[in-house]
Design a protein around this nucleic acid. Sequence first.
DNA 1: ACGGTGACGCTCA
DNA 2: TTGAGCGCCACCG
Length: 100
Amino acid sequence: MKNSFAERCYKILRKVPRGKVTTYGEIAKALKSNAYRAVGNAMNKNPFPGSKVPCHRVVKSNGEVGGFASETGKKVSMLKEEGINIVEGKIDLGKYLYKF
DNA sequence: ACGGTGACGCTCA
DNA sequence: TTGAGCGCCACCG
């Protein structure tokens, strides 16, 4: 159960500093895999919503926040609060995309 | 063992 | 530019 792909994603996600965001693709690359789908799955099964694993800090490669914020939009506001400039649910990856 | 599913990514029209 | 389709890997039933 430990050292599983999901655990890997969480670990990487945790090393993303506040005010920055990462993409599923970057996480997959960090895992030496192109399993961006699996990364999303791991987040979906995320055992620690909010504090341990800041899933809201993970965005899509095109700059969209992602499905988890589609319904409420609260997560978007949360990212903004961290200092990330978001316009219409789009994040400026050129400024806030954290690279491993 | 197999197939379906999913918080995605990229290319083509 | 926008929309649609195809491909990717890992997990669950």
